[in-house]
Design a protein around this nucleic acid. Structure first.
Lengths: 342, 342
DNA sequence: AATCATTTCCAAACCGCTTTGGATTGCACC
DNA sequence: GGTGCAATCCAAAGCGGTTTGGAAATGATT
């Protein structure tokens, strides 16, 4: 059933039917009601391709996920972020287009999405320091919002981020207050913007108390269980091992905990751990008392709001870039305690 | 730049340009080359909406992810499955449309995807016993492939699944061979098809050796860390605790391990654990020696192949349903050992 | 009753591509 | 030179909507 057939059935012109369904004021309430009922009865919905062609709007948002061929790691927070964004899209009538793309192909894909008219805007995931994608999207003229930020990007742009610096500074201070002096940082890949900010927060908190930093206690790597385990194992084998860990992700922290237990130590007593908790739905930080002391911020909520920001931007082209900064909560769990006496 | 403009620039008709780009034989090689060069120079790509409208094919595959409002759990294997499917789509020139949808809305969304012409086919995720979605999609006339199977579905349909029954039977036998007699099953939600099959494999292996089953040692729940922890904790507190666990997911197993260690026990010595390992990229089962003994099958490869099957089906409408059954490997890791003497 | 503003509807153009059904040209062949 | 055939190219008709620019009907006003 298409517009023409529906119109014919009603004895109306396609124009009128289209307007009735579109909520335009040029049709009487009586005929609008008739049209709506018929549409419902035949479960008619307008062909998306046709209306997109006619209006020039794709009613779709692109999520381009770069996958480097070497690592092949799918970002574990991605699923929850998408779930949040998906809620917003459903409400707003947008579709979500997902492209998993090799790093090098990203520019080409961006251009294609634009010239093929497949999407009205793009969500930029996993920004890096001086991320070239921002200038690229600005040049192409595709609306976008960054989940995170990119230190050193020249062009102004819209973003939503967690205050990573503050979160990790607070977490570090909390550990210092508990008497810890050898604090390790198990961070994400060093070129990721969030990792840079977390390290800055960590370092500035240490510096504020005059604590020297030890490069041997700072790791940057993919945030997987095995990499977390490897980093923590190496540090714990150090002749002056850390008494506390600051870990950038719940997933890595599982590996850190495994490393701690491998050595017969007990988390929360012998070694303290603070993580950043994205509130992953399949990896909740405990059900009542948190397993880990954590800086917490919902990535799902971030997904919802990033999507809202992008839609607002698409609806009001030419508007000034917006930004939102989430403050992470510091929640106390069972993984931290006073530094053990030497 | 659109077709007409490009054609005008070349002094050709849109028809010829379209055919040159489409690889049709009705144009001379010389003009084809000219057209291709011009297209490249202006980085022209045809408007997707327009060609989809003209051809009647969306060149897109829908992934509809049902989210029950109560649980709000995003399936953790989903990200890797998608990554695999995405590879196939990229090669075949398809786009991936993702809809996160409340359980109840699934039928409506299916119908809309069909009537709006948004997709050419659908991947069905997380099938349940007697899953109504299969009959629904058949009725609607939307090509689909199921990732998994649905016991008790009447209509024939295409699917790709792991041999869950066999995998869990083998794992159970392996534990029995090690002398374990009190074996617990920490499974997924009981209405999920894969969970049913895994339980069947588990039960039949026990029955084959004449081992009685204890309902207290069988849990079915969401496959999250916290639920895994809760189930294992309860079982370990039993007056006759299990000496071995069979766990349906790597994520739950993290919780099971935590429960074991909470009680001061050591995995692999005091308690054995076998998991099903989907080879999640962010949760690898160790880097050299596996952490867990496991039944292993790559969900990413499943994603690749399910997508291939669906595209093949779309290309050859009316062809008979296809199916593929993956056999899981049984790989030995550090989490299993002989049953401790009582 | 004539005038005019509103209300309600419609014909037709358009979005950018694909594809059908020729038209034209070039060439070999008798 | 006329015929037949293949090789090239093109005009125009869709695909299924939206939107512009009226036209017709209705009602209010004088």
């Amino acid at each position: 059933m298409n517009l023409k057939q529906l119109a014919q059935h009603l004895g109306l012109s396609p124009t009128t039917v289209s307007r009735a369904l579109g909520g335009y004021p040029e049709v009487s309430e009586a005929t609008r009601e008739r049209v709506l009922q018929a549409a419902r009865r035949f479960s008619y919905s307008p062909n998306a391709r046709a209306s997109q062609l006619a209006t020039g709007r794709a009613m779709a948002i692109g999520h381009v996920i770069p996958v480097s061929t070497r690592h092949e790691i799918v970002n574990p927070v991605f699923a929850d972020f998408i779930a949040g964004a998906g809620e917003t899209y459903l409400k707003a009538g947008y579709e979500m287009l997902l492209s998993i793309v090799a790093d090098d192909d990203v520019p080409r894909i961006y251009r294609e999405l634009k010239s093929r008219g497949s999407v009205d805007g793009i969500i930029l995931h996993g920004p890096r320091a001086k991320d070239g994608r921002i200038a690229l999207l600005a040049e192409i003229g595709l609306p976008f919002v960054v989940h995170g930020r990119a230190t050193g990007a020249d062009t102004p742009y819209s973003w939503l981020d967690v205050n990573n610096t503050r979160a990790f500074a607070r977490a570090t201070e909390f550990l210092l207050d508990l008497g810890h002096r050898r604090i390790a940082l198990v961070n994400g890949l060093e070129f990721m913007d969030f990792a840079i900010r977390r390290r800055d927060g960590f370092l500035s908190a240490l510096a504020a108390r005059g604590i020297a930093t030890d490069p041997a206690l700072m790791a940057s790597d993919e945030m997987t269980e095995t990499r977390g385990h490897a980093a923590a194992s190496a540090m714990l084998a150090h002749r002056e091992p850390p008494t506390a860990f600051l870990v950038s992700s719940m997933i890595s922290a599982v590996g850190v905990r495994r490393a701690i237990e491998d050595r017969g130590l007990k988390m929360g007593r012998d070694v303290s751990v603070i993580i950043h908790d994205d509130e992953l739905s399949y990896m909740k930080n405990g059900e009542d008392v948190p397993i880990f002391t954590a800086t917490r911020s919902s990535v799902r909520e971030a997904g919802r709001q990033v999507a809202e920001m992008l839609i607002a931007q698409i609806d009001a082209p030419g508007s000034a870039p917006q930004s939102r900064l989430f403050e992470a909560e510091l929640i106390i769990g069972r993984s931290t305690g006073p530094a053990p006496r030497p």
